[in-house]
Simulated scan of single mutants.
Amino acid sequence: MCGRFAVDKDTNELIEEFVAAGGDVHDWAPSWNLAPTQQVPVVIESVKTGELVRRLETARWSLVPGWSKSLTMKFPTFNARSETAAEKSTFSASVKSKRAIIPASGYYEWHTDPVTKKKTPFYIHSGNDETLAFAGLYSWWKDHSKAEDDPTSWNLTATILTSDAVDDLLDIHDRNPVPLPREWWGRWLDPATVGDQDFVDAAVQAALPVAGSLEIREVAPLPFQGEGPELIRPVTKAGQ
């Protein structure tokens, strides 16, 4: 799974990286401690005035399907299992045509000692500091308690797809996000491509080399609230 991640790029850097138009990102600033339900940057494509537009937006990290009566779901939706996303009512419509990329500098995972049950945090990232492109899904949720013409009634929400962990990451956790290679970015985002389980499975396979190349370092316990690049600094062991 992926329950915390970091994005150390600002709006302009993300727009340049993903060749996206500026969207609703006025409140975005780099963060090293993003948690579910917070606003996170997402890259999406949709047709506007007859033209396909790729843009950068911010979305609530926990997908809420349009049919939900509430913005708060009864179960966690910040991650979606890639193996079943196409058949789950929460995610199936998004798999078909509302796929997103969630940029990330890296993400955190906790290894639980089977004997002591102690949880040790690790930061998983690209060795060359490249921005990761997690395969994601998005959905627009409308708050019907607000006026029809109230622009704040629409909420963009998103989730990160996960898959079985590659061998290199199994010692940390049994799941990992799906980091798409660059050649898959356009294919994944294109709303004209009707997604199904085979399409998701192909994306997961394409992501395996990227996931297997990621580097891992132990970091200090992550505060519930707290911010700054010091959160991803490696732990220095005694005697080192």
Rank of each mutant, 00 (worst) to 15 (best):
F122L: 12
F122T: 10
F122P: 01
Y123E: 05
Y123T: 00
Y123D: 01
I124L: 07
I124C: 03
H125C: 03
S126C: 01
S126T: 03
G127C: 04
G127N: 05
G127K: 11
G127A: 08
G127W: 08
N128Q: 15
N128C: 11
N128L: 10
D129E: 13
D129K: 13
D129Q: 10
E130R: 11
E130A: 13
T131Q: 14
T131E: 12
T131P: 12
L132A: 06
L132D: 04
L132V: 08
A133P: 01
A133K: 03
A135H: 03
G136F: 08
L137M: 00
L137I: 01
L137G: 06
L137Q: 05
L137E: 02
Y138H: 06
Y138C: 04
Y138T: 02
Y138V: 02
S139E: 10
S139C: 01
S139P: 03
W140M: 02
W140N: 01
W140T: 08
W140S: 07
W140C: 01
W141V: 02
W141G: 03
W141F: 00
W141L: 06
K142R: 13
K142L: 15
D143P: 12
D143M: 10
D143C: 10
D143Y: 10
D143F: 12
D143Q: 09
H144K: 15
H144N: 15
S145V: 04
S145P: 07
S145D: 12
K146S: 14
A147P: 11
A147V: 02
A147N: 13
E148Y: 10
E148C: 06
E148R: 09
D150M: 11
D150Y: 10
D150A: 07
P151K: 08
P151Y: 11
P151R: 11
P151M: 13
P151T: 13
T152Q: 11
T152N: 12
S153I: 14
S153A: 15
W154K: 13
W154T: 14
N155P: 07
L156K: 05
L156E: 03
L156H: 07
T157N: 03
T157L: 01
A158Y: 12
A158I: 12
A158N: 10
A158W: 12
T159A: 08
T159V: 01
T159S: 12
T159Q: 01
T159G: 04
I160Q: 08
L161S: 04
L161G: 02
L161Y: 00
T162Y: 05
T162R: 00
S163F: 04
D164C: 10
D164H: 13
D164M: 13
A165D: 06
V166C: 11
V166P: 05
V166G: 07
V166Q: 10
V166D: 09
D167H: 07
D167W: 00
D168P: 11
D168G: 14
D168I: 15
L169Y: 14
L169Q: 15
L170N: 01
L170Y: 00
L170C: 06
L170H: 08
D171E: 12
D171I: 09
I172L: 14
I172K: 12
I172M: 11
I172E: 06
I172H: 14
H173V: 03
H173D: 05
H173G: 07
D174N: 05
D174S: 05
D174H: 07
R175F: 04
R175H: 02
N176H: 13
P177M: 06
P177D: 02
V178T: 06
P179K: 02
P179R: 06
P179G: 05
L180Y: 05
L180V: 03
